[in-house]
């Protein structure tokens, strides 16, 4: 920088002007760091605590007295009696919340086409239905932590969940409908179902019906990828 401006004959006392710039810069930078880097985030934190303590602290959900995850962070569901999350490319096994991200595979990627093909086969086998497979069921999300499924993909899974939990299909459809969120102002975003909250509803409904140990607890040993 100094060479660009030092050569300039129009700058009087170039050295002392530069010294002044340096001193002012350091003082201003430190003052602004205190304001914008400390006071500002603390003020936002204070206001958030007052207005929305749960939402601003991670939206954690509890069931049977323990935290079971965040309603905003997708997690893996493999048990037959649970609705499934979308495929995840976050981390090696998916749903790694310290490694958020997508597959970053190109539309012409063979690897992507192969994984879509395999996912289509799994969905068709586990949740057979007429017609094409829902796009969200066989693609991984941008974050790898998408907490939602499309209502169409959720409804496709109803028959399997009814068979596994013993709940009647209309009851499960009702749960899906209750958890379906619409577009903002009827226009922005897309309709969606929160998978963790829906599964908590399913567990609660199943527990009500058969007050024995909840079916979900029996399935917790399944940790396969």
């Amino acid at each position: 920088m100094s060479s660009t401006f030092g050569k300039n004959p129009g700058t009087k006392n170039g050295g002392s002007a530069m010294r002044e710039h340096v001193v002012t810069s350091i003082r201003l930078l430190l003052s602004l760091t205190a304001l914008l880097g400390l006071a500002y985030p603390i003020a936002v934190w204070g206001a958030a605590q007052l207005l929305a303590a749960k939402a601003s602290s991670g939206s954690f959900e509890t069931a049977e007295g323990r935290v079971v995850g965040s309603s905003l962070i997708g997690q893996k569901f493999a048990a037959a009696e649970h609705f499934r999350s979308r495929p995840s490319a976050a981390g090696d096994g998916g749903w790694d919340a310290t490694s958020s991200g997508g597959s970053n595979l190109a539309p012409t990627s063979r690897k992507l086409a192969d994984s879509v093909k395999a996912a289509v086969e799994v969905v068709r086998k586990d949740d057979p239905a007429e017609g094409p497979v829902q796009a969200d069921a066989v693609t991984s999300s941008g974050s790898g932590l998408d907490p939602h499924a499309s209502p169409a993909y959720a409804l496709r899974q109803v028959a399997r969940i009814a068979a596994a939990t013993g709940l009647p299909e209309p009851r499960i459809r009702e749960l899906v409908a209750r958890r379906t969120e619409g577009r903002f102002l009827g226009l922005f975003g897309e309709p969606r179902v929160n998978v963790l909250l829906l599964n908590l509803d399913v567990d609660a409904a199943a527990a009500e019906r058969a007050p024995a140990p909840a079916p979900a607890a029996a399935a917790t040993s399944d940790l396969r990828q």
């Binding site: 997508g102 068709r124 796009a135 969200d136």
Partner: peptide, 16 residues
């Protein structure tokens, strides 16, 4: 491959 074409390209996208 049998994927629903009505909602567009969902790879790398969020449902919401």
């Amino acid at each position: 491959l049998g994927v629903d074409a009505s909602v567009g390209n969902m790879e790398g996208k969020e449902v919401r």
